[in-house]
């Protein structure tokens, strides 16, 4: 991937929150790139900073209590982290769309679907009312809602969860963004609807030449859609690379643990493995490698030294020097 093709580039992003128990380092050094027309996943457990990362791309972190403690976010040559509210607004919805986790509450209950899609269009473009109408109908058709014309008059409570998520996607796409951030778009939906929504994303992405950044905790989603994956743990990126590479040869103990805990056909009848312990409180992270208290490979240096990224080639990076050394000495 050449520099020209990079659409979004986040480097060493650090977002902290002031709280009563001290400084919560929600995101503490995350770097990733998204290319044009590329699908990238950020994976991690609840509370690892995925959503904060996604919101910070659009400048939606409330400051205060949030603090942008370091790093930069570049989007198509623009330094987003230095923009003011007015400039940010020209990017939100217009260049980067966002789809949220909860389609049930992300639509305004007092307005019709048509009103809300129209609002999304009119936020960035001055177009006459009849054009807003035709575009809204087209958007609803694009996201696979039948009898779009009459659905425009419906209120959110008259639609099912899957349809509401489709409407959210239509709103995110209203101004032809270059990139869509989908923050756990399928978590609140039934499994069958999840698959439909993921396929819809794939289809729309092809049709509209846009990049998609998925934020998810669901490795099934990752395997299904992503070209590249970034694994996050406790506010830092621990491993990244091509999806196939990471699923076949995970290089970080955390990723290995995650994959081992997935139920697969070969593990039928066996007890599923799990990672012992739980995610550290962002205000009281252990020193050194944040994963070391739960890691079975942990050695003395893990407690004191923050691990650096180790390059396994083909873009596969992992933040575990212990396993990297073992590989060097023929351990694996």
């Amino acid at each position: 991937m050449t520099d020209n093709d990079v659409l979004l580039s986040v480097s060493d992003l650090r977002i902290h929150f002031r709280s009563d128990n001290g400084l919560a380092k929600a995101v503490d050094g995350v770097s990733f790139d998204v290319g044009r027309r590329e699908t990238v996943c950020i994976v991690g457990e609840s509370g690892c900073g995925k959503t904060v990362t996604a919101l910070s791309i659009l400048g939606l972190i409330p400051i205060p209590p949030g603090i942008m403690a370091g790093g930069s976010i570049g989007f198509d040559g623009i330094d987003i982290s230095s923009l003011g509210e007015d400039d940010l607004r020209t990017i939100r919805g217009n260049r980067i769309g966002m789809v949220f986790q909860e389609p049930l509450t992300s639509l305004n209950p007092v307005f019709t679907i048509g009103d809300q899609i129209g609002e999304a269009i009119l936020a960035h473009e001055k177009v006459p009312q009849d054009e807003v109408h035709t575009r809204s109908v087209q958007l609803l058709k694009d996201v696979g809602i039948p009898s779009a014309e009459s659905r425009l008059q419906d209120y959110p409570h008259q639609l099912s969860g899957g349809q509401r998520q489709r409407v959210m996607i239509a709103m995110a796409l209203a101004c032809h963004p270059d990139m869509v951030i989908a923050d756990e778009p399928t978590t609140a939906l039934d499994v069958t609807v999840q698959a439909q929504i993921l396929n819809l994303f794939k289809e729309l992405q092809k049709k509209r030449d846009m990049a998609v950044l998925y934020i998810t905790h669901d490795l099934g989603v990752v395997a299904n859609v992503a070209e590249r994956v970034y694994i996050m743990y406790a506010g830092i990126g621990v491993e990244s690379g091509r999806t196939a590479g990471i699923f076949q040869t995970p290089r970080h103990p955390y990723t290995q643990g995650l994959l081992a805990s997935l139920p697969t056909r070969s593990k039928r009848g066996q007890r599923l493995s799990s990672i012992p312990g739980s995610v550290p409180n962002p205000a009281r992270k252990p020193p050194g490698c944040p994963f070391h208290p739960r890691c079975r490979y942990s050695v003395e240096t893990c407690r004191t030294r923050f691990p650096e990224l180790c390059d396994y080639g083909d873009g596969h990076l992992s933040r575990c020097p212990v396993l990297y050394e073992r590989r060097e000495t023929g351990g694996s």
């Binding site: 659009l58 939606l60 509210e85 607004r89 020209t90 990017i91 939100r92 919805g93 217009n94 769309g97 966002m98 949220f100 909860e102 509450t105 992300s106 639509l107 305004n108 209950p109 007092v110 307005f111 609002e119 999304a120 936020a123 960035h124 959210m168 709103m171 995110a172 209203a174």
Partner: peptide
């Protein structure tokens, strides 16, 4: 969530207050 969603769509603050939230 719908207020956050409206902000993510780039809708102006006064419009969020008076058109989205007020009703």
């Amino acid at each position: 969530d719908f207020v956050l969603a409206a902000r993510a769509l780039g809708i102006r603050t006064y419009r969020i207050i008076f058109r989205q939230m007020m009703p």
